[in-house]
Amino acid sequence: MSLVSAVDENTLAAFRQGDERAVRALYDAYGRLVFAIANRVLRDIGLAEEAVQQTFVQAWRGSVTFEQGRDPAPWLATIARRVAIDIQRREARRPTSPLDDAPPGDGSLVTHDPSADQLWSTWETRAAIEALAPDERQIVRLQHMEGYTQQEIADKLGIALGTVKSRSFRAHRSLAAKLRHVREPIGEQ
């Protein structure tokens, strides 16, 4: 099952009632995407997980005003961004170590909050990644996140170079198609 499949109206109605199973279903559908946004803002897995919890709590608090029939994804993304930025500001008020000690990408080195468009791109990109077949996702990760060449991936996974190339081609074609609509906002930034 895709992690990005939308939950149905019955699940959303049960979520409004605080039903445990509905909360879990909403988390299963959107939890990793909320986590990706929080982690994009906070660059800290522990804080991002705290933000995920707060996001779902705030989503439940606001669920009575959530319009039926709408896609909950943008609504959750907006809450996640706000919660993560609040946590980031809270952490910024805490005593800090010298900047020289901070690793690259540390939240304390970030001077501007990511825009809503940037975070929505993060959400969409993560969703597109989640929709890939596991073997394609693995190759994309090794290629882009770990920086391996296709030959190195083939050696590492013990598969033919041609297999790597075909999986990589399929994965990138799928990603390109799914992310077409986020291209313009990214280009404008």
Binding site: A36, N39, I45, G105, T122, T125, R126, I129, M145, L175
Partner: peptide, 8 residues
């Protein structure tokens, strides 16, 4: 795709 936040 290079953003680590996407893969954690």
């Amino acid at each position: 795709l290079v953003d680590p936040a996407l893969w954690s």
